[in-house]
Amino acid sequence: MRITMTVDGTSYTDDVEPRTLLVQHLRENLGKVGTVIGCDTSNCGACTVHLNGRSVKSCSVLAVQADGAEITTIEGLERDGQPHPVQQAFHENHALQCGFCTPGMIMQSIDLLGDTPDPSEEQVREGLEGNLCRCTGYQNIVKAVRAAAGELGAKR
């Protein structure tokens, strides 16, 4: 099937098998290997991207379902060579170790802050319940998201 989608600002038209998952399309056809696959059951959240502005698990969306959509991945967050404040906060707060869950964590954190600009610790934990991390115990991730909230709030 022929589909067209905009990913990180670039429009792509491709022929894909209907069974192709969005995450596979991103990784295998568009070279967006920054987005990764961690499970088969949509539990881990590592593949989280934004589809028309909302976070989704790209392993649980068919590429054909995203025909016509606008997608943002971890690779599309930098502006003028500067990392997004959430990316920066993950770095500054040591919110990653192996880094495999990080793209999904960051994409979900940005979505969360869109809804809840100044989240409590509990709200951050709840907002990230669909993203698993095996390295950090989440404490510094929570800290980073709240730090980023402050940063984004100061900018507004």
Partner: peptide
Amino acid sequence: EDARLISGRTRW
């Protein structure tokens, strides 16, 4: 290590 890992410039 973080600069690459937070931006998806990874080599898994």
